[in-house]
Structure formats: structure tokens, C-alpha cells
């Protein structure tokens, strides 16, 4: 199958376009229907943010420390790796040994980084 003519664009992607439009339309319709049908009877407290009944104190839009930013950085590294692996998995059988060696180096380097991150305590949560 691979290496044949490129697939017909319309046949391949038109369904996706319809599906995306349909899903987005459905979501919009649900929002609209619920906005129209719902009653509007607020008390003053209805519109307050939920904080377990305690009066809210301080500004709610301030900087929040994302404690797990190391996780985010590691995720980007690993997900890039995964992005390469998708393509690699498809062409692997064309020359298995070479591909194994190539990806072995790649994963090896990543593995060293992973071990370093582990040793530095990037995977500790307190």
C-alpha cells in the first residue's frame, strides 16, 4: 500500500471537515439551547466564585506558581521523542538493523537525560 499514488485529498479529508463542523455546531447548539431555556434568577451570591462558602479574599487573577514546570519540560522532551518514534515505527521494517541502531542512539541519549533528571529529583513530588 505504501509508496502508491498520494490518496485523493477530497475523499480523505472531506469527511473530517464535515465531522469537525458538525461537532462544533452541536456544541454551539447545546450552549445556545441551554442559555435560552435556563431561567435567570440570581441572588447576589450566585455569581460569586465557589470557595466553600468562605468570603473570597484577595485578587483572583494573580501569578500562580506552577510547581511542576520540570514535568512540563520533560514532557516536551519525551513527546518530541514520541513524534519521531511514530514515523520511525512505520519505516522500521525497511531496514530493521539500521533503524534499531539509529533509534538506539537516540533513545540512549534520552535515557541518559532521564537518569540525570531522576537523580536530580525531578520525579519527586511533595
Amino acid at each position: 500500500m505504501r509508496g502508491d499514488n498520494p490518496p485523493p485529498v477530497f475523499e480523505t479529508y472531506f469527511g473530517l471537515l464535515v465531522l469537525l463542523t458538525l461537532s462544533a455546531g452541536l456544541a454551539a447548539a447545546l450552549l445556545a439551547v441551554s442559555a435560552v431555556l435556563g431561567p435567570r434568577r440570581h441572588e447576589s451570591a450566585t455569581l460569586d466564585p465557589y470557595e466553600c462558602g468562605v468570603p473570597s479574599a484577595g485578587d483572583l487573577r494573580r501569578r500562580t506558581s506552577v510547581r511542576y514546570y520540570v514535568t512540563a519540560v520533560l514532557f516536551i522532551l519525551f513527546d518530541l521523542e514520541v513524534a519521531f518514534l511514530w514515523a520511525w515505527a512505520v519505516v522500521f521494517h525497511e531496514s530493521p538493523l539500521e533503524n534499531l541502531a539509529a533509534m538506539g542512539v537516540f533513545i540512549g541519549v534520552l535515557g541518559v537525560g532521564y537518569a540525570y533528571a531522576w537523580a536530580k529529583g525531578a520525579f519527586e513530588w511533595d
Binding site: S23, A24, L26, A27, A28, L30, L31, V33, S34, A35, L37, G38, P39, R40, R41, H42, T46, L47, D48, P49, L60
Partner: peptide
Amino acid sequence: LTKEDIVPAGVDRLPFVLAPALGL
């Protein structure tokens, strides 16, 4: 569908409405 559609005071309206639609 028939419950009050509460948009609390002070929310960022567009992303607040967009989030559930995007998820679905």
C-alpha cells in the same frame, strides 16, 4: 438544559464558554 446557565461575575467570558464546546 433547563437549569440556570450561570456565568459567574469576573470570569473571562469567551474562554469560559469556549472550554466546554472545545472539549466536546
